[in-house]
Design a protein around this nucleic acid. Structure first.
Lengths: 196, 196
DNA sequence: TAGATTGTAGAACAATCGTTCTGAAAGAGG
DNA sequence: CCTCTTTCAGAACGATTGTTCTACAATCTA
């Protein structure tokens, strides 16, 4: 054998997520990609097939890292409801941290308009996170943290919609107040269904 | 003078909204545009300057027609709260009617990532609608339809976030249940603040 | 050291992009 | 009639697109 891989594929995918989120798919050219990823054309094509392949790989990597991080938070030991509150506040924090950028999922939803494979990956991310919310709420219900008549599925559906609404509108400059109130309302949904 | 305009500019802009929403900005070529709009290259450039000019004009037209239609509904005579319920249900109806397309505002938010002028127009649309929600709720408050301690601004912020969350996620195939529950939750926010 | 492999640098490719230009057909006013 | 003006059809423009190809440097194993 010979020369080992000198670039870290995962690290390249992380950079790719950043670039695509910032400039979109069609808005990012190959020269821009090679410059920002720090690899040359040929390496890009060898590793990912083509431009769309790179995008799809980046999207899957996003699921393995960012989406999974939220799921881990929801599943962390301790009070399920307190974990949920942490995740909800995290959406506002993300919006405040990189305003105008927004989460990669949103770019992917719009960009993959006509790509069934890409849309399927995004949809799986959204559904996984939604099920994460739901199972978190079911555990809270079992633990007696929620009123017995609380409806985890419906709550999860509503929370997911608000979550991505926040992520979308965070791309607009003057959204901080709006996002703050939306997070407060999400926390209120949880509070209202809390026991005692 | 001479030959009168043979194509209706407003009608062309309506078609342009459809095309751009379906294929995005970079994803739509000039030949596609001339085909779908039913006008030739030169007419397009004479009337709108260039491709981006057409997009911005279409975006403004969207504000004059679609956004304004929602505002008119909110301002219609009769019970403010009942009007608000109608508009909220309208978001679900829109999502059900053309699933996978989503409202033009969302395309514009993602597509205008790096175009300040375009982003400003979109932001104005979102803000106008939000103020429409808010003034509707203030009128409801004055009319005694809301509890005295209801907070129109916060309610409006939260409702806008959910509205666009719905519009975004409606692009995913399996979102109908999720959207239904989200609308129910939005109606619940209104209900919970309604006067006894 | 020899050879295989993995990377880089950059030329070259056909295709398509947005845009402009040319020339002519069509209808309204003088 | 003639003269504008609007629109059309389509050629042409340079620039850029995604992709492939060629040549070469680097680093591992045998």
């Amino acid at each position: 054998m010979a020369r080992p891989k000198t670039f870290d594929e995962q690290q390249v995918l992380t950079k790719a997520i950043d670039v695509f989120r910032r400039k979109g798919f069609d808005g990012t050219s190959i020269p821009e990609l090679t410059a920002e990823l720090g690899i040359c054309r040929q390496s890009l094509y060898n590793a990912f097939g083509d431009k769309r392949g790179l995008f799809l790989d980046a999207l899957e990597h996003y699921g393995r890292v960012e989406v999974q991080a939220k799921l881990d938070l929801l599943d962390a030991p301790g009070s399920p409801i307190e974990n949920l509150r942490t995740v909800i506040r995290g959406w506002a924090a993300m919006a405040a941290q990189c305003p105008g950028e927004g989460c990669f999922t949103i770019t992917a939803i719009v960009v993959n308009r006509n790509d069934a494979k890409g849309l399927a990956i995004v949809e799986e991310h959204v559904n996984r996170l939604e099920r994460g919310y739901e199972s978190n709420l079911e555990r809270a219900l079992l633990a007696g943290e929620l009123k017995p008549d609380a409806k985890p599925a419906r709550m999860a559906h509503s929370l997911i919609t608000s979550s991505y609404g926040i992520a979308l509108l965070s791309r607009l400059a003057g959204s901080s107040v709006r996002i703050g109130d939306s997070v407060a309302e999400m926390l209120d949904i949880v509070e209202r269904n809390a026991a005692g």
